[in-house]
């Protein structure tokens, strides 16, 4: 497994959810985290002055983003975006030496729940629109969410393909151990759509809570096949064999991004959104296997 480029830097900067009762304890611990992360950011920022991309590209014309951003920007992004968002966060930090970007990655529903519980985040990127809508309905989003990428489903098997899977329909054959996401999570809801589109009813041996658990069951050889996102298959590389599904377009997951209403760094947040929707962001997303915002 490849380690994300910025994994080490961001690993200590996860933001914990708070409950009202534990506010004092959580506050002091997040202050500690903040200090630690600010230190790490300084190391990153002062070492290398070469910017990752021209400043003009990061700010869409007309967006009121001041030249010098500073402070700490906190980004909550769906787990499937880990590498992309960490890469772009590093690029943004290089453009603005005074700015530190903290990223926190988890399942979309988990991130939404954390935001609803008052976790201090400036930007939220989810792996589906329903989850983002939950946050919008709770009145926690500033402005309207914007779709930055799409993802489709694909079938993966262990490299030696023990069950001989050649199509989506093969997954329904008796004796084939198929693992999918539970319908409660976005990738599971998309899998159900794909079942409807193909007319193939799956009888999975396990319905996992996250797509990474599905991938893990396949790479470890426990399962004969799994239904995952195209980006997961791309990231797994040689550890899996991919069986493309022609009907994949029937279940497209859109990734909306939004600046949160309680953002403490709204300008830096807008800069990150502009970066994601701009040419550089779209190139990084495409490299990771994502489709364009309009769908494949």
């Amino acid at each position: 497994m490849r380690a994300p480029k910025q994994g080490r830097r961001t690993a200590g900067c996860l933001v914990r959810p708070r409950t009202a009762g534990l506010r004092a304890v959580a506050l002091s611990s997040s202050l500690l985290v903040l200090t630690a992360c600010a230190g790490a950011g300084d190391d990153d920022g002062t070492g290398d002055a070469a910017p990752g991309l021209p400043a003009a590209e990061a700010t869409a014309p007309g967006t009121p983003v001041p030249d010098e951003l500073s402070g700490t920007l906190t980004v909550f992004a769906a787990a499937s975006l880990t590498e992309v968002v960490d890469d772009l966060a590093a690029a943004l930090e290089q453009q603005h030496p005074g700015l530190t970007v903290r990223t926190s990655h988890a399942g979309s529903s988990e991130l939404a729940a954390q935001v609803e519980q008052g976790a201090p985040a400036d930007v939220l990127v989810t792996a589906d629109e329903a989850t983002m809508q939950r946050v919008v309905d709770a009145g926690l989003v500033a402005g309207a969410p914007e779709v930055v990428a799409t993802n489709t489903l694909t079938v993966v098997t262990p490299p030696d393909d023990p069950a001989g899977v050649g199509s989506f329909a093969d997954l329904a054959r008796p004796g084939t151990d198929v693992v999918v996401c539970a319908p409660q999570v976005p990738c599971g809801a998309a899998t159900e759509q794909l079942e409807e589109a193909t007319g193939v009813a799956l009888h999975p041996v396990s319905e996992e809570g996250s797509v990474t658990d599905v991938l893990g069951k396949v790479t470890s050889g426990q399962a004969d096949a799994g239904v995952v996102y195209a980006t997961d298959a791309r990231r797994a590389g040689d550890a899996v064999r991919e069986v493309e599904v022609p009907e994949a377009g029937a279940a497209v997951n859109a990734y909306p991004v939004a600046v949160l209403a309680d953002a403490t760094e709204p300008d830096a947040a807008a800069a990150l959104v502009a970066l994601l929707t701009g040419a550089e962001g779209q190139r990084v997303l495409a490299d990771a296997g994502f489709g364009p915002p309009g769908g494949p």
Partner: peptide, 26 residues
């Protein structure tokens, strides 16, 4: 979660159910 999987009635025990329900029905 790592070893057995998660399927209602077969491998999804109470703690796994709590973890999954949290996604949609806190």
């Amino acid at each position: 979660l790592t070893f057995a999987g998660s399927l209602q009635g077969t491998t999804r025990t109470l703690p796994l159910e709590v973890y999954l329900q949290r996604e949609t029905d806190p």
